[in-house]
Each structure stands twice: as structure tokens, then as C-alpha cells.
Simulated scan of single mutants.
Amino acid sequence: MAKFLNTSATNYFLEELIKNARDRLILISPFLRLNDRIKELLEDKNRLKIDVRIVYGKSELQPGEISWLTALSYLRTSFCKNLHAKCYLNEELCIITSLNLYEFSQVNNNEMGVLIRRSEDPDLYKEAYEEAQRIIRISDEIRISVETVEKEVEIIAENEEPSCDKLTSSKLAQKLGVKTNEFIEQLVKSGYLEARDGKNYITTKGKDAGGEFRMSPKHGPYFLWPEAFRP
């Protein structure tokens, strides 16, 4: 029989669901942003060669997080337009909840959820699993990389700001003949960006050089730089 979950119970059972996955793990959440505990659990699943699929609607990953994610060879990511569902499954448990992945362990939030055990509610589990599979089928599988995110952001930036005379980090890196992640690292090393808690923030020096922080609804934060800018 399905079990009601409050905030603390949702956090507890979500961690147990991830830890105890032995064959497959499906994480469906609108926001792709991961805290350190989720990263630790996913790294363990990758070491055990467990098939992990994450479906998201918006990405707020920073370049350092993207590099971490691409190193997990058994984890696949898919983008689903207009995603609002939050559903987490392994081969035995399913949680349908208001809790986003990035809110995991934030017990100050008020969340609710329902835990479904396959052994107790096989039909209900099957319906939830089949719907999760349908969401996966209509999603676009994406191997996230710094270059991929930046290129997609470039299109958004061009559409949103046709008169913008600045370039994204990716486009400027391409013009300079270096990889995007190397360019980002150089910006941090030179003091134009500051790395804190796995994320990059533009500094006063970066702003003085003409750099700008922008936020894409689909792909998260990115930076623009004058075309003549050189770190």
C-alpha cells in the first residue's frame, strides 16, 4: 500500500531509493542541479555500473559540475520540454513528490510525497514506471558537455538579444582556438571569474572587462564577453 511521506521522510526514502538501486535508477526532476550528497550517491552507482537516467527540464549546472557529470559513463541525461513532474524510481521503489533534486536535504522546505513499493502495489508501480518510460521516450537524450550547453545558449542569446555585440564563453574560446573548459579555467585563474562551491561567479574584474552574467531558462547561467576581450 502506498505510503505518505512528509519532508524528512521524502529525503530519507529518496536517499534509500538511490543507494539501493541494483539494476536501474530513474530520476525525473524539472531542475538539473545536484548537491554534494546526490553527487556522492550517483558516483557510487557509476562505480557499480548501474544504469542511471536523469530527465530534466532546466539545467543550472556550472562548467565544473558538467565536467563531473560527463565523467560518469553509466549516467545518461535527457531533456524534456515543459517537464514539471518529480518522480524517482529504482527496480523496487517509486517516489512521486513535490521535491526537486536540488532541494534534497533542505528540510526547511515543506514537501509531500507518496512512496510506492513494487512488492505491495505492483499495478500502481507499473503505471508509474510506464509513465516514466513514456517521458523518457519523448525526451531528447543529451550527453551534456560545456561545449553543448554553451552552443545551445548561444542560440538563445542570439534570439533574445539580436543586437548583442558580445560572445558567449564558448564562441570566444572557439575564436581563440581553445576548448571552452580550458577558457573557463583561464578566466578563473586570471580573476575574471571566481569559483565557489562548484559554481562560477563573475568578479568585479570580470565586469570591468565588459563581462556579463546571463541566465537561460532552459540551460541555466552563462557569461558574455566583448569580442575583443582576451584574458
Rank of each mutant, 00 (worst) to 15 (best):
M1Y: 05
A2F: 09
S8L: 14
A9H: 10
N11A: 14
Y12S: 04
F13R: 13
E16S: 05
I18C: 08
R22S: 01
R24S: 12
I26N: 08
I26K: 13
L27V: 01
L32F: 11
R33T: 11
R37W: 11
K39N: 00
E43R: 09
K45H: 03
N46D: 15
R47Q: 12
D51M: 04
D51P: 05
Y56L: 08
Q62V: 11
P63I: 06
P63K: 03
P63Y: 08
G64I: 02
G64C: 00
G64Q: 10
E65V: 03
S67G: 10
W68V: 06
L69G: 13
L69Q: 03
A71H: 07
A71K: 13
L72R: 00
L72E: 00
R76K: 15
R76Y: 12
S78A: 14
F79R: 02
C80Y: 02
C80H: 11
C80N: 07
C80D: 03
K81D: 09
N82K: 08
N82R: 14
L83C: 13
H84V: 10
H84W: 09
C87K: 12
C87H: 07
N90D: 15
L93V: 01
C94I: 06
I95A: 13
I95W: 08
I96T: 07
L99A: 15
S105A: 14
Q106Y: 15
N109T: 01
N110A: 15
N110I: 08
M112S: 13
I116C: 01
R117Y: 05
D123Q: 04
L124T: 14
K126N: 12
K126M: 14
E131Y: 15
E131H: 14
Q133R: 06
R134S: 13
I135F: 07
I138W: 03
E141W: 05
E141S: 07
I142R: 06
I144T: 06
V146Q: 02
E147Q: 05
V149M: 04
E154M: 02
A157N: 10
E158Q: 09
N159K: 10
D165C: 00
D165M: 01
K166D: 09
T168S: 15
S170I: 00
K171Q: 14
L172H: 06
L176R: 11
K179V: 05
K179W: 00
K179H: 09
N181R: 08
N181K: 10
E185F: 08
Q186C: 05
Q186D: 03
L187V: 01
L187C: 04
K189N: 10
G191Q: 10
Y192H: 15
Y192S: 10
E194R: 01
K199V: 11
N200R: 05
Y201V: 05
I202L: 07
T203P: 05
T203C: 06
T204Q: 09
G206V: 01
G206H: 04
K207S: 13
A209F: 04
E212Y: 04
R214Y: 11
S216R: 03
H219M: 11
Y222H: 12
A228T: 13
F229K: 00
F229S: 03
